[in-house]
Design a protein around this nucleic acid. Structure first.
Lengths: 133, 133
DNA sequence: CTTGAGCTTCCAGTGACTGGAAGCCCTATA
DNA sequence: TATAGGGCTTCCAGTCACTGGAAGCTCAAG
């Protein structure tokens, strides 16, 4: 399989696949013409990576997950630990975004958004705390 | 004021303040010895930037917000537009994270996390859909 | 034989910093 | 007066995970 077909079937762009090879996540063989020659297992790995990335796992997490995947003697606890840590990082991010959202939506509601210069959003950003909230 | 004091009072690290000068967000004067000489207005601007960044606005948004802040003839509608767009970007991000969270938490729950290799998380990532949900 | 798509490598840029090195400046103390 | 330290300066490189683009090779179709 050439890179184009693998890209199509895995949903990962060719550029990204080459990048993954660069950093050692996949190691496709080479044909005589210098083209990368992917096997089914490579495709499988790339699809795995695609799904892990879609769940927000970092590349390093993906690397570890892949090696656990290939390790018949793994303990599921190792996988679960990675996933739990990631889950809690996601929770932190959500909480942080929701806090921003909270503040910002109050400010947006308080701003008339007309032709006049008076603006509670700028007032808040400037440190003037005599505001909504 | 030297950079150290401004950093302390604005809560923005010296490195970041220099970076902000690099990209033209602040333009402190210079003393005879080559040190940056910040005025109160610079400090004010930096504090403004700190709050805007804390709300997740991009540097480009911050640049625009700052210039609106300094423009007496602005229309609050311009500010509100920036804020609304950012708010909806935040909402998108939250939604995306919650989707990840959803999937991931199901997988984590389904994984026993013991010494055995059997793992629903890896099964899901590998594309095996005969899973929970 | 040409055309055009697909493949190759390499270099640079993204966003928003952050770390580190080399070296100048200033003040306080021995 | 020498020196030690802390603060300041600039510049370069690294982060994360790609992504774009240029130059050039290969392959299949017409």
């Amino acid at each position: 399989m050439n890179i184009g077909e693998v890209a199509e079937r895995s949903g990962i762009p060719p550029k990204t696949i080459r990048y993954y090879e660069d950093i050692g996540l996949v190691r496709p063989q080479r044909s005589g013409n210098g083209y990368r020659a992917f096997r089914e297992t490579d495709l499988h790995k790339l699809a795995f990576l695609g799904r892990a990335r879609a769940l927000g796992f970092s590349i390093e997490d993906c690397r570890n997950l892949l090696s656990l995947y290939e390790d018949e003697t793994r303990e599921s606890a190792q996988v679960k630990t990675i996933a739990e840590e990631h889950l809690s990082a996601i929770d932190d991010k959500i909480a942080q975004l929701q806090e921003m959202r909270e503040t910002l939506s109050h400010l947006v509601e308080a701003c008339r958004g007309d032709h006049r210069p008076d603006c509670p959003i700028l007032k808040d950003l400037s440190g003037d705390l005599k505001n909504i909230r």
